[in-house]
Design a protein around this nucleic acid. Structure first.
Lengths: 246, 246
DNA sequence: TGAAAATGTACATATATGTGAATTTATATG
DNA sequence: CATATAAATTCACATATATGTACATTTTCA
């Protein structure tokens, strides 16, 4: 069950992140199609908690820097080592496609760092973006790091859907694809989940964290050179990952 | 009216900002005294929207870097000029007290940047902290920048409460205090709102934004030297604020 | 200056939502 | 390996909550 008002808080923040300017109650209500009274209650709540203020009289609300302060505190903890960002930056630069670091979230995989392609036609993804763990290259690169028992427990929660012609729609299909990935040396996906989208990924364990790196883009562009891309990912990881014990 | 689930989202985030480590559903539910089922719904909502993930299997939830990405976008807009942070850093260092930049939010004043005192006994405030605009030094330094009409419209919304012995509990009392502040050259508050707390503040208009700087601490420590502190604030602002037109 | 329009606020009520109890799944223990 | 214990999930129902309506305030424009 979705908690509507919790989701609304996030929507309001995303709204401000997009518009980047103060907005009045009426503007926000109209934008979302919410009743004024409800919008009023929400804004009042956020204000009372110190997350919204009125930069100028009658010019509307805007988030306080408290969001930033909180987000910084939260993200200071086991941040990704800096070389992982260099990694996807280089990969994106060299391939011209979107590169990301991905982490598990139940039956989904979450993008936790992204460098977007600069091409006009590109894979559009942002930090926080989620995709099914079993139907994507990045997700399967995570599953490869699980024990068979752990994979089983994930499998049982998956609702297998036919997202595209090649989506694996059974546990066996996923397991087969995982075995193929091991032989191949990397994970791939050709529109398994998103139409026209192809990608290559490899596991990226860091400490005891199970992550993966993925490079993804339009099928027609990345498809023909998927093996090269995968090799590039592997080489770049080798080069950038600090050597030695620990 | 407080929107409960909106407030809960904020509480969860603050919880993570404090503990700085993943937490399981049960831990979160117990911490807040929420029913497991409700907690489940909330966590599911935040996860589905890409704001929570599971860093390690069965080790609980933690916020994704999406919070940081969003907060950065939001705070990039008209950030405070860097010298304002230098200002409160210096003031805090020199006085040993807590120094802050404050902005209006209706009948309240919000702390939008804070450098805390290092003293064991100190004024504890964080970014986002809110205080009544009429019953605090920092708030009155904001009111000084309003036109009489604007002040009137604020006054009408204030619920005058006797927070302490010296709290102004009428429009006239506030106006008198404002006039005194102008003569004095700075605003003060002696436990007008918070017990044992005293502070000195001056207006800090930046562009068309109405802000104020305040230095606050325990009454016994800051009270005797309040005039010096105020003078220091004024001098430091003069020194740091860029000169010239604009 | 005054009247109309837009915006913000309060409140009672119907209903969408949170929750207790039941069920399933995972982990610990003998 | 079986059983006990704890955690996660589901679901139906009572209730806390979002909203329609009415009112107040502010702004716009003739």
């Amino acid at each position: 069950m979705i908690v509507r008002q919790a989701a609304n808080v996030l929507e309001i923040m995303e709204f401000f992140a997009q518009t980047r300017k103060p907005a009045t109650l009426a503007e926000i209500a109209d934008h979302f199609g919410w009743p004024r009274s409800s919008t009023f209650n929400l804004l009042a709540t956020l204000s009372e908690k110190g997350y919204l203020y009125e930069p100028r009289p009658r010019a509307g609300f805007y988030p306080t820097p408290r969001w930033l302060a909180m987000a910084r505190l939260i993200s200071e903890v086991e941040p990704l080592p800096p070389w992982t960002h260099t990694l996807i930056a280089e990969l994106s630069a060299e391939t011209g496609e979107t590169a990301s670091i991905v982490a598990p979230a139940g039956v989904m995989a979450v993008f936790i760092d992204v460098v977007e392609s600069q091409a006009p036609i590109r894979y559009f993804a942002t930090v926080g973006h989620r995709v099914p763990i079993h139907a994507t290259a990045s997700g399967r690169a995570l599953l490869l790091q699980y024990s068979p028992e752990e994979r089983d427990s994930v499998y049982r929660k998956i609702e297998f859907k036919q997202y595209g012609p090649s989506t694996p729609i059974s546990i066996e299909a996923v397991e087969i694809e995982l075995r193929n990935s091991i032989e191949r040396g990397y994970c791939v996906s050709f529109a398994d989940y998103s139409r026209d989208l192809a990608g290559a990924a490899i596991p990226l364990p860091i400490g005891d964290r199970r992550l993966s790196v993925v490079v993804a883009g339009p099928e027609f562009r990345i498809g023909p050179k998927i093996a090269e891309v995968a090799a590039l990912i592997a080489r770049t990881v080798d080069r950038l990952r600090p050597k030695g014990p620990g």
